[in-house]
């Protein structure tokens, strides 16, 4: 039972981090970056192929590469597409996502690459009389720490203030001196770091990394963003968390019908979009204004 609760929280936390990364980029440039999935994937790949190095070194390499890739996406592609409208940007990010998947396939092969990453994490410890895996505790701790850091960054720093202001009204933010190019690049960099952390968390649980490794979690994080409200970072993170918890619960309680968990989740998304396009955290119809 404790394990089930921990699993739900750690899954929720993971999706919250992914949702936060997507939400940051969406906030500043109204782009749903499908290729966020490939950021998570590259982090996982690098952790697998550098598994011989000490874990910390391996993670730092993964984080640096992932962040560079995120910033490169912005500099080489999204920056040039700014102003073409959200539909074009969405398709471009979809295209970039597929492109990177194929590149990974060429580099790493279509078959999963795998390595035992931090094997000590799959051990178990006794908590309140029940045995739980170290990895689920570690995940919960990591996500809480990262969410706190992200919360501080967003709520208390000048960069965070600029990110929030730009998400509300980029035009006015620029009038006040917010440098759009730098700010958007910073948002991509932060989302890259978050993706690297998410990659680390998921690869410990599931070390079978294939080209489409990050797609599932990204789609679910997107679902979370829509549920929580895409126009607020807090809503995005909360929505991501809810999706993780709901999915855990559906998996526990649907029994044999658990294969349809995604259908229920997507139906929930459809209903929420129709009733409240801005997410459950928003006032009705907030989406119309973004």
């Amino acid at each position: 039972m404790i394990q089930a609760i921990l699993d739900a929280i750690s899954l929720g936390g993971t999706y919250a981090l992914a949702a936060l990364g997507l939400g940051l980029v969406f906030g500043v440039m109204r782009l749903v970056n499908f290729a966020h999935a490939e950021l998570i994937t590259i982090s996982a790949y690098i952790l697998v192929v550098t598994n011989d190095l000490p874990l910390l070194v391996s993670f730092i390499i993964a984080a640096v590469v992932t962040t560079l890739l995120a910033v490169a996406m912005e500099l080489l592609i999204y920056r040039r597409l700014r102003g073409t409208g959200p539909a074009i940007m969405l398709i471009a990010s979809f295209g970039l996502s597929v492109l990177l998947q194929r590149v990974y396939e060429l580099i790493f092969g279509a078959l999963p690459k795998s390595a035992a990453i931090a094997p000590w994490m799959s051990g178990e410890v006794k908590v309140a009389g029940a045995s739980v895996t170290i990895s689920s505790i570690a995940t919960v701790v990591i996500t809480i720490v990262i969410l706190l850091i992200a919360g501080y960054l967003i709520e208390r720093t000048s960069l965070g203030l600029q990110l929030r202001a730009a998400a509300i009204d980029f035009k006015t933010a620029r009038l006040l001196g917010v440098r759009s190019n730098r700010l958007i690049a910073a948002a991509f960099a932060i989302s890259g770091v978050l993706a690297a952390i998410v990659g680390f968390i998921v690869v410990v649980e599931n070390p079978q990394v294939s080209p489409m490794y990050g797609v599932n979690i990204t789609i679910l994080a997107l679902v979370g963003i829509v549920i929580g409200g895409i126009s607020s970072l807090r809503g995005s993170a909360l929505g991501g968390f809810m999706v993780g918890v709901i999915l855990s619960l559906l998996n526990t309680f649907l029994g044999n019908a658990r294969v349809y968990a995604y259908s229920w989740l997507f139906l929930l998304v459809l209903i929420i979009l129709l009733v409240r396009p801005g997410g459950i955290m928003s006032k009705a119809n907030e989406m119309e204004r973004v």
Binding site: S158, A165, I168, D169, L175, L176, G177
Partner: peptide, 29 residues
Amino acid sequence: VRLGLCLVPEGRQIFGGLSVAENLQLGLT
């Protein structure tokens, strides 16, 4: 803006969801 020309836009365009202090803080950018 950095060269010393600043616009107060039509309709004011303050950030309604942010606090007054945060709005002023943004002006420092």
